[in-house]
């Protein structure tokens, strides 16, 4: 009896030890992250003002702002979304609902999963070769957006497939049993019921793309831009212009990199402030993803 009590005490001690170790590990991660964010905020927060958003970069740190950077980021995201969403969703639907399940689709599936893990600079090189040199899109918003679209395409495809897989087969059978074609089933059921999951995947993809620097630098984004791309709407005929697609650009992460690499301390403050803005953009997107997922989960429970 005494032996057993001893044994139990020892087992419990091990249990307790891991509890302490686990707590410490969790704490180290959290504390570091918190310290990083706190440091960023303490350094950069005072610099954030309307003027900071409305000014171009400048030689004088106190006059420099992120206007061209955030506009560039916004436009790039727009191109990325427009390119990656239709392609990724269509591919995901095809693979789940249309493609026959055989060794070929298995290989495609494995490769898409692998593509999601390819270093982003490789996508940059691909985009440089394809969009800049081959299609001659130049070092433009279009090229940058398409490069990031390639980067998040596997994520969008995988999110689409996951979301579609969550739809029970009984729903498909119910639709087919009424004489629906594949496309009718996809259009009336598969797409509406998987929208939540697909949107969540897209936003998470975009929030990864927004912070990417390597592929954007590779395709030749500029680090110092003191002008905005051509506005997409104008007062003259034909009112809508797509010239902005071919304008040079910069984005938030590049602007931050540019400022950090300067020797003056004041520029580092700018970098911290821009970092806060970028962080907030990402957090907002993630919050949107969580909200959308919550909304759709509430609406459709299988």
């Amino acid at each position: 009896m005494k032996d057993i009590k001893k044994r139990i005490a020892f087992n419990k001690f091990k249990d307790y030890s891991f509890r302490v170790l686990g707590l410490l590990s969790t704490f180290v991660g959290l504390a570091l992250l918190f310290a990083l964010i706190a440091d960023l905020f303490m350094e950069g927060a005072p610099r954030i003002s309307y003027k900071f958003f409305a000014s171009f970069p400048s030689r004088f740190p106190e006059e420099a702002g992120i206007l061209s950077a955030w506009v560039g980021t916004l436009l790039i995201m727009l191109v990325t979304a427009f390119a990656a969403i239709p392609l990724g969703v269509a591919a995901g639907i095809y693979l789940e609902e249309y493609a026959k399940k055989n060794w070929l689709t298995d290989i495609i599936e494995i490769n898409i999963a692998n593509l999601a893990g390819v270093p982003s600079i490789i996508y940059g090189l691909l985009a440089l070769g394809m969009f800049v040199y081959f299609f001659k899109f130049g070092e433009s918003v279009l090229t940058g957006g398409l490069a990031l679209a390639l980067l998040i395409l596997p994520m969008v495809i995988m999110a689409t497939r996951e979301a579609i897989r969550a739809i029970p087969n009984s729903i498909r059978e119910a639709s087919y049993a009424l004489g629906a074609t594949k496309w009718q089933t996809v259009w009336w059921h598969i797409i509406p019921y998987s929208t939540g999951g697909i949107l969540t995947g897209i936003i998470i993809g975009l929030s990864r793309a927004i912070g990417e620097t390597a592929p954007i630098i590779t395709v030749g984004a500029l680090t110092f831009i003191a002008f905005l791309p051509t506005p997409p709407v104008s007062s003259d005929f034909p009112f809508i212009s797509f010239k902005w697609l071919f304008d040079p650009f910069t984005v938030m992460p590049i602007q931050i990199f540019n400022w950090v690499s300067r020797p003056q301390q004041e520029f580092h403050v700018n970098a911290a402030a821009a970092g806060i803005v970028l962080l907030c953009m990402t957090l907002l997107m993630n919050a949107a993803a969580i909200y959308i997922r919550y909304r759709f989960r509430k609406k459709i429970k299988w």
């Binding site: 029970p168 009984s170 729903i171 059978e173 119910a174 639709s175 049993a177 009424l178 004489g179 629906a180 009718q184 009336w188 059921h189 019921y193 609406k299 459709i300």
Partner: peptide, 25 residues
């Protein structure tokens, strides 16, 4: 037409569930 083992209505309104066969046509 077919009625399945487990009720499998579409996650749509009652009206839309019944109307679906007609919409398909």
């Amino acid at each position: 037409s077919m009625v399945f083992q487990k009720p499998n209505p579409f996650p749509k309104s009652i009206y839309e569930n019944v109307a679906y066969g007609l919409r398909v046509r």
